[in-house]
Design a protein around this nucleic acid. Structure first.
Lengths: 349, 349
DNA sequence: CTGAAAGCGCTTACAG
DNA sequence: CTGAAAGCGCTTACAG
């Protein structure tokens, strides 16, 4: 069954009525609707989305843009799969489908976005890996396309976003470490995305609240990866006044960091306290297992989906766009990598 | 600039000519084409994909279907991100875009596929996590939609596929371990997808070639995850005749397996040899680092893209569809987790 | 080389 | 409650 015409012919009614029945319009005879629905099911008829989109001006799809190179910085692995599941749950209720739009390394993110929106693949967008100054946001605002960002930007005004509580986590980690007696707390950070800046702010706020001096030498800029953690480890080992604790903006770093420390005979958790960002299977299986912060990817996805629905006039007619901003709370999960109290004398070189 | 009509008006030519110029038709005056292209660029005009699709019957997009629950068995996000990059490189040359289509846990894969194809989101498909008996394949063949599968199915006839060399890896791993003196070699496997069956076949072929008996007790069925490795580890520790070596169908398993073994005082690589499937950052940073097999995700993506292009009549008019099948070779990368020769006496309990 | 026109498959005022 | 018709934005024979 290729098109609506054929289905209408088979039922001996007009295509208009078939369309109305299929679209759940109220003004259709109950029996007619039943016949149409049954015939559609029987013949496997589904309206051609191009025809529908052309007529209605929407696509019934929403997109989640991924940047292939940098996404590792938000969690790599299963982060986006977990979030997708939650997004789908919400948007599915509105008969929207989710598609992931991967932007290649070689393509400019704005060019890509412009192309995908111009082609009108999707009715709304979720973008991630938000930068401090992110031209994609200006473009999307100008284009009047409903969108939500995962991650705030520098000014973070005029659009809706959800951001993990990077500042809160860094602050909390510093306070916990300080309470255990640490005085020299390093930050293994990555400021490619804005989240790194926010993380550093929380870190500095924590230092101030704990009455500790901020030593720029303790601010390590590395990649959000196993290798980045290794780089941070080598760097710290080479320092004259070695930190006794380090906070990681990405838990993957712990893998490389542990490796490097152990190679040098420095025991993670015993000779150096380590706190990771997000709890993950990797962090759980590290030995000592990594203290980190927990969040539900599914719930985050649900929140993102709902935020986007709020931006879409067809679903939320009396909602002011760009008005919601959420800092997603995360819960400390104690591992064995930052035991306390810390015995300062036993550690510094 | 909203539509072609407006652009044509601005240039004072017909929309037909604008369209022809934009579509690189040869029968357009050189100067006219130049004017059109410049104006389009200037006003940011991009043809509406719905109009184009409706008229031409294609979408200029290809889809990579992911199953959110089971994809971990192929490697999680990083795997698909790496592959996506390669796919895009190839299909981009034909002005096709790649979108990822995540099928939620709660949705039936065939229903999902049917819906997405009926809506005509994409002109071609790559599906993954192929099962032994995969109804998606019958559906796609019947629908005459160009597609390629990542992973062969049980019969693997009548469609094109690329599969990692699971059989070859298992065979090679057994042979290497046997050559080092191992007699009891376990397999931590996952047969949810067909790859697990193929892996087991290679394992048995290896055992036979090495003159070793196949002990069903050494065939462990676990999840392709950290936790799955832990389960396998606990199981092996509890065995009367403990294996001296184990081959993992997924390298993530090593994380949990190492953990459990170490907890029990069994040293990975020394008291038990371990070989993983795919080399990854995780495997590289394990201590001892995991012997595993290397492949280029990017090249695999390129091959998938090319295979799909071959299936698409508009790009490969004289290609017989469904005729290509590739077993993707993988290269052994020696780590420290399976040193040899093995001293049998020192190990069994 | 260009323009006028048909038509891709749908939805939706409009008339009855 | 239903049908006939317009039109969404594009591409492409066809005529000139």
């Amino acid at each position: 069954m290729k098109d609506i015409r054929e289905l209408a012919q088979h039922l001996d009614i007009s295509i208009g009525t078939v369309s109305r029945a299929l679209n759940n319009r109220p003004d259709v005879n109950k029996n007619t609707r039943k016949r149409v629905l049954e015939a559609a099911l029987q013949f496997g008829y589904v309206p051609n989305q191009s025809g529908r989109s052309l007529r209605r001006g929407n696509t019934n799809a929403i997109g989640l843009m991924l940047e292939l190179g940098t996404e590792a910085s938000m969690g790599g692995d299963n982060f986006f799969m977990g979030v997708s599941e939650g997004i789908q749950e919400v948007i599915g209720r509105h008969n929207l489908d989710l598609i992931l739009m991967p932007c290649g390394l070689k393509e400019d993110a704005v060019d890509y976005l412009q192309r995908m929106t111009a082609r009108r693949f999707v009715d709304g967008l979720i973008i991630s890996a938000t930068r401090y100054d992110d031209p994609r946001i200006d473009f999307l605002i100008k284009s009047k396309i409903p969108f939500v960002t995962l991650g705030r930007s520098g000014d973070s005004k005029g659009f809706s976003w959800i951001d993990l509580d990077f500042a809160g986590v860094a602050y909390d980690a510093v306070m916990r470490l300080a309470a255990k007696g640490h005085r020299r707390i390093a930050l293994a950070n990555n400021t490619t995305a804005n989240l790194g800046r926010v993380f550093a702010e929380g870190y500095h706020a924590g230092l101030a609240a704990a009455g500790l001096d901020a030593d720029p030498a303790l601010l390590l800029e590395v990649g959000s990866s196993e290798e980045g953690g290794a780089v941070a480890g080598r760097h710290m080992l080479a320092m004259d006044a070695r930190p006794t604790a380090v906070i990681l903006v990405h838990e993957l770093m712990a893998v490389g960091l542990y490796h490097i420390l152990e190679e040098a005979g420095v025991r993670p958790g015993e000779d150096m306290a380590i706190v990771g960002f997000r709890e993950s299977p990797h962090s759980r299986f590290l030995r000592p297992n990594l203290s980190a912060y927990r969040l539900s990817l599914h719930e985050l996805g649900v929140a993102l989906g709902e935020a986007l629905i709020n931006e879409m006039p067809q679903f939320s007619p009396d909602q002011a766009p760009g008005c919601s901003s959420v800092i997603w709370p995360m819960e400390y999960l104690e591992g064995m990598s930052d035991p306390g109290p810390w015995n300062d004398s036993g550690t510094a070189p």
